[in-house]
């Protein structure tokens, strides 16, 4: 059963990934990305990461891809890109060689080290929780780890998100006529 789930989800992930790279239309590429993200969410569930699977669907497939589609529609760049025109003749062969080489390199490292002994990690309170309570053990374990060991990093991510929102509003809005903008201060245009 787990094998079946893995094979189906892996086919979704790889098919979607190839679709992102190959499809010439940006909207089609974005929809292929959704397929990949759902496949990764299924694989998260198969590995007992239930909370991350939910976040994956909500944040990635729900928010980020919708943002992509929104930008594509907003800018009207939804015309297909002609993939047959290639200014640099050597670019695609070199990219294929580098990609294949990277795949072989990482794959070899994984295969070679697959028998490596797992270092004895202390069974933390979080892992014990997850073992004791199969229903929401994953969420409890993750929350305990997040809000105890990594609480400072968690607070800093909120600062990061606020900065990102403010920066995006500043970057993307149209300046009113006569208003001093970042661009005019920098002397461009």
């Amino acid at each position: 059963m787990e094998l079946f789930v893995f094979v189906v989800a892996a086919a979704m992930v790889l098919g979607g990934a190839v679709g992102v790279v190959v499809r010439s239309h940006p909207v089609h590429a974005a929809l292929s990305l959704v397929l990949t993200l759902f496949g990764v969410a299924v694989l998260f569930i198969a590995q007992d990461a239930h909370f991350l699977a939910a976040v994956q669907v909500i944040v990635y497939a729900g928010a980020i891809v919708v943002l992509f589609l929104f930008v594509i529609m907003l800018l009207g760049v939804d015309n297909a890109e002609d993939l047959h025109v290639e200014p640099f003749k050597v670019q695609r062969p070199v990219a294929s060689v580098v990609g294949a080489g990277l795949m072989v390199l990482i794959g070899t490292a994984i295969i070679v080290s697959r028998k490596a002994a797992v270092p004895p990690s202390p069974q933390s309170q979080a892992v014990q929780d997850a073992a004791l309570d199969p229903h929401d053990g994953n969420i409890k374990a993750l929350a305990r780890d997040l809000f105890s060991d990594h609480v400072l990093a968690f607070e800093l991510t909120s600062v990061l998100l606020v900065i990102a929102v403010v920066a995006t509003v500043l970057l993307a809005r149209k300046p009113r006529p006569g208003e001093l903008t970042v661009e005019s201060k920098a002397g461009g245009r």
Partner: peptide, 22 residues
């Protein structure tokens, strides 16, 4: 291994595609 293959596809995509959104 699946993660390695997915990563490699992403690397090839970054090197090949020319649309900034893609």
């Amino acid at each position: 291994l699946l993660g390695a293959v997915l990563f490699s596809i992403g690397v090839v995509g970054v090197m090949v595609r020319r649309n900034p959104l893609v």
